[in-house]
Amino acid sequence: MTEYERSRTMPALPEHVFDQAADVNRLDAWLPQDLHVAADDLPTVTVHEDRTDEDTSATLRVQPERMRLEWGTREGTGYSGWLQVEGVGSGASEVTVHLSFAEDSHDPGQDAVGAALDGSLRRLEEQVRLRIDNAAG
């Protein structure tokens, strides 16, 4: 099993960050750009990957009381992951994303995963900023 993890501090309250991250209808705004999630009947979702043009059955669990998302492929041989939001004081939050690949054949490699995680966290922060700016203006 191969595991990857990235964190990013965001200048927003943890509740605001989690609400943006957990909005099932807006996951495409921050997920890696070649992944698209369709919520069937939570926790069941379908993940479409542009690179392979394949749909995969997966689960997505939203845990607001813990400010945590957990996901994974249903067959258990692909990947799983989680996103955790924690307050770090002064109205800021730290968001950590963790991915685990059960089989090497599903692991795109350290460089690709690192770039995808960093890009996702950057897009999530942009979405949070847009939401806060729109609420304030």
Rank of each mutant, 00 (worst) to 15 (best):
A116K: 04
G87Q: 00
T56I: 08
A39M: 07
H16A: 00
L42N: 03
E103W: 09
E86V: 13
V128Y: 07
R68F: 07
S7L: 07
S105L: 10
W30D: 04
G109Q: 01
V88C: 10
A21C: 03
M67P: 04
D34I: 10
A136N: 10
P43I: 04
Q63F: 02
T73S: 11
L121H: 12
T77K: 08
L60I: 00
D118N: 15
D104Y: 01
R51P: 08
E49N: 13
A135H: 02
L124Q: 02
L27C: 09
E3V: 09
T46P: 12
L99Q: 14
G109W: 07
S57V: 10
V128E: 00
G81R: 14
G137P: 09
L117G: 11
Y79R: 03
L124E: 06
R68S: 02
M10D: 10
T52R: 02
G89V: 00
T56Y: 14
L117W: 13
R131E: 06
G87Y: 06
R8E: 04
G78R: 04
S120W: 05
L13P: 00
N25Q: 11
T52Q: 03
G114V: 12
D19I: 08
T44G: 01
Q110I: 11
G89N: 04
H16Y: 05
Q33L: 12
Q84I: 10
D133I: 12
H98N: 12
L124R: 12
L27P: 12
R26T: 05
R123T: 09
L42V: 06
E125N: 11
L60R: 12
R74V: 04
R61G: 05
P43N: 01
R68H: 05
N25S: 06
T59S: 15
G137H: 08
T59A: 11
G109Y: 01
V128C: 03
A39Q: 09
N134T: 14
D41F: 09
R8H: 09
H48T: 15
G87D: 11
E54D: 06
T77H: 04
E126L: 03
L130R: 13
S93L: 08
R6V: 03
T2K: 14
V85C: 11
R68A: 08
H48M: 05
P32C: 13
D23Y: 06
A115E: 15
E75Y: 12
E49W: 12
A115D: 15
D107L: 04
L69E: 08
D133A: 15
A102N: 07
F101R: 09
Y4V: 11
D40Q: 14
T59I: 13
L35G: 00
G76N: 07
G109E: 11
A39W: 10
V17W: 02
S90K: 03
D19L: 05
A136E: 11
L35N: 13
D53V: 01
V113H: 10
E15Q: 11
D55A: 06
T77R: 09
A58G: 08
D41I: 09
N134C: 12
A112R: 12
L124W: 06
V88F: 02
G89L: 00
D107R: 02
T96F: 10
